[in-house]
Design a protein around this nucleic acid. Sequence first.
DNA 1: ATCTAATTGAGACTAAATCTCAATTACGCC
DNA 2: GGCGTAATTGAGATTTAGTCTCAATTAGAT
Lengths: 150, 150
Amino acid sequence: MSSSQEKFNAFIREKGLRLTSQRTVIARLALNRETHFTADDLLAWSREKDKGISRATVYRTLSLLTDLGLLESLDFGDGRLCYEPAEGRNHHDHIVCLHCGSITEFHCNEIEELQCDVADRLGFRVDHHSLRIYGTCKDCSERTECNEQR
Amino acid sequence: MSSSQEKFNAFIREKGLRLTSQRTVIARLALNRETHFTADDLLAWSREKDKGISRATVYRTLSLLTDLGLLESLDFGDGRLCYEPAEGRNHHDHIVCLHCGSITEFHCNEIEELQCDVADRLGFRVDHHSLRIYGTCKDCSERTECNEQR
DNA sequence: ATCTAATTGAGACTAAATCTCAATTACGCC
DNA sequence: GGCGTAATTGAGATTTAGTCTCAATTAGAT
Ligand SMILES: [Mn+2]
Ligand SMILES: [Mn+2]
Ligand SMILES: [Zn+2]
Ligand SMILES: [Zn+2]
């Protein structure tokens, strides 16, 4: 069992909540993902393990996990949230290809620092931030160039 | 009439579209705003001028205006889009107070350049980006401190 | 004034997410 | 191992921003 699953279980116990089979299945699947996923993805995977799991329970467990900081929710502007494991991973931002939808992660310390500077200057205390760059990935650029050369 | 309204009218003519009274009302109200607004705000203002204006027409005109680049749409993650006039304004990003909801605009050239650097390094061509900082504004910080001192 | 294609308004529809509530279940206690 | 009870669940209703449909209206060319 991964350390984030153990944190989840400990949290459940601490708060006097109950460790149900549904929560166990859903949390395990969510916390061990490598890539971004949607609530609907998670519902489908969960139902492979237990047909009866409801959409509501998936959303309720996603809330628990994000409140706990074990998952992070991401809004890429396509009308639904994505999620990714947050535990033990470093903060990063995202660059999204408008053609193929691929999402690449990056981290830039200078940008992070400059954000703090800006916030300081404006008298804000920073809680978190969201930075997305939208554009065309290498593969899609090359594909487009080829088409243009026809 | 503002220059962005004239651009809108010219565009309508060019494309063989029709300059209806509804489009005129909605575009004037949208393009002369100083602050961020929602589709629903715009519907309410439009109906003050012409009771019959429909939700659908407001959304349709918002699409025209954003496609034209006269408006920009902004997603602050609260489940609906905001809009702001884009014509003749410089690009800027936003810092949002999680307590009072106030939105402050800022611009940081170094951040903009670093974003390009990052994209270059990853082989992306940049189309646009979205940077939001979320935190606590000066006023809300001071209010909280006072409460704590009680 | 006439014609016709673009536009409109009303309301149906969509889809993600939340809510409701009766039925089920985890778990502390014996 | 059973009991009691409060937390949890599933089914499906609801919400809400936004889109779609289509018959009726209208802008603008002739
Ligand atoms: Mn990520
Ligand atoms: Mn702005
Ligand atoms: Zn791509
Ligand atoms: Zn504030």
